[in-house]
Design a protein around this nucleic acid. Structure first.
Length: 95
DNA sequence: CAAACTATTCAGC
DNA sequence: GCTGAATAGTTTG
């Protein structure tokens, strides 16, 4: 088991709750985590995020629909979002 | 324990 | 639309 900060755990759970093809804002994640005013902490945690491959940090964007930042790079994040959108459609329409 | 840093957000012009 | 400042939690020494 990996030990981590209490807020981080909630943040990860909130991010994992985001459906594929959809994106949420850092504020939203912070709120789900229990601290709506900790949007900045969310970014800090995800930045040091110990499980970048099991946490869809790319589904978290800024409030202005800005892409925000990503561990693998903003470009990779954008690409992933578009790809996930297609995947979501596939799962919904079973194309 | 305290200081510094940060993947953000809000307000003003 | 852009710039500057604030706030909350994590991390490191």
């Amino acid at each position: 088991m990996i030990k981590m900060s209490s807020f981080a755990k909630q943040v990860y759970k909130a991010v994992l709750k985001i459906p594929i093809g959809e994106v949420r804002t850092y504020k939203w994640v912070a709120k789900e985590a229990g601290k709506a005013d900790a949007y900045r902490a969310v970014g800090t945690i995800l930045k040091n995020n110990p499980l970048p491959l099991i946490i869809p940090c790319h589904r978290v964007v800024k409030s202005n629909s800005d892409v925000g930042d990503y561990i693998f790079g903003k470009m990779r994040k954008k690409r992933l979002l578009g790809l996930e959108k297609e995947v979501a459609m596939c799962l919904a329409n079973k194309k």
